[in-house]
Design a protein around this nucleic acid. Structure first.
Lengths: 202, 202
DNA sequence: ATTATCTATAGATCTATAGATAATGC
DNA sequence: ATTATCTATAGATCTATAGATAATGC
């Protein structure tokens, strides 16, 4: 039953990857280790060769999901060099994102459970949030480094709140309005002070 | 063992009240019916005379917590008639709120788990969010009813995202910065267009 | 007579561990 | 020889139900 070193590494990666998706979809308490290991193509007994506890896996899965989010943000921004921030905001505040928590932002999918998690997970979360803020700050066009970082923080938090509300409500109209209104607010700001003044002058 | 009608009503209210606090503190899956009923001063066997399932209690507790939040908002606003919106924003984005999920906003404490809940809970959540938006809209000073409602939605979502991030991160500095930056952004807006133009002109 | 609550328990989880197995890697 | 995985299970949950009990309210 023993596997080669390479296979072990792949199995480990597969566990984290599946966990990152399944925790976001079903919640941390919503998927057990037996089902999770089965999804990774193993039996549950083998889990503890890879992680000392479920908590450790939660931390690893959080770190992975958040790093992946930062990477996706940068990828989206590069694909639209004329309006990188707009592309990221539109992607985040899209119906597709709301409909697919498993591959979306981990803060939106797990955010309100993080404060109940252990130290390892909260640290992974903190690190991941910092990465996301940094990725968002790179998209800001105007202002000092500090101003860009602060705008990144408020933009991230705003998008996050909008997705959580949009995802939770059962009324599709309220959901779409939430997304659209937030998109308008953030993109209105994104076009810069000059364009905004022009808009207001109409 | 049977109780008078009045006592039954009080027991029911106590169950919902304790659930509303405990779900926010420990998460919906973080407290079992046995412990919950004990906290309400009953044994777990009696639960099913009050609710057909745990899910139904979750819905009732959500509704209660959100209605209570809307009420608290209105109370806070009335206490500071010169700057009602400012008072609400400062209260929401305070360290006290971040430190006390059990008595705070239910969207912040349970938001990212709601989309995994049953139809009853999601409906209660939707209704509660609508109440909160309405309460926030009352605080907006300028614009049409529609503009006030839309500003209420973005303000609520922004505060929410900030509290979830602030509560999750283990770095106290990042937590405080998140709260402060968002407070400044929302209160900057709250002073109205005239004051903002003045600020920019400096 | 009705019914809110209690005690007790069924049945289904879930995390974690123990010991067996068999392939890798020294 | 080591160790990644497997099967099997311990022990602790958790939701929900069954039947007994005793006080209310007709």
């Amino acid at each position: 039953m023993r596997r080669s070193r390479e296979e072990v590494t792949r199995a480990h990666a597969r566990i984290v990857e599946r966990a990152a998706v399944l925790f976001r979809e079903r919640g941390i308490d919503g998927i057990g280790l037996a089902d999770l290991m089965q999804e990774a193509g193993l039996t549950h007994g083998g889990f503890y060769r890879h992680f000392p506890s479920k908590d450790e896996l939660v931390a690893a899965a959080c770190a992975q999901a958040l790093t992946e989010s930062a990477r996706r943000m940068r990828r989206r921004a590069q694909k639209d060099p004329t309006d990188p921030l707009g592309a990221v905001v539109k992607g985040f505040l899209s119906r597709d994102h709301v409909a697919d928590p498993g591959r979306g932002c981990a803060i939106a999918a797990l955010g309100s459970d993080i404060f109940r998690c252990g130290a390892e997970t909260r640290q992974a979360f903190t690190q991941g949030v910092a990465e996301l803020i940094a990725a968002m700050a790179e998209l800001q066009q105007e202002g000092s480094a500090r101003e860009r970082r602060e705008r990144a923080m408020t933009t991230l938090a705003s998008m996050l709140g909008a997705v959580i509300i949009a995802r939770g409500v059962s009324d599709p109209e309220l959901r779409d309005t939430m997304l659209e209104v937030m998109r308008r607010q953030l993109l209105g700001r994104a076009v810069g002070a000059r364009a905004r003044r022009t808009l207001h002058a109409r």
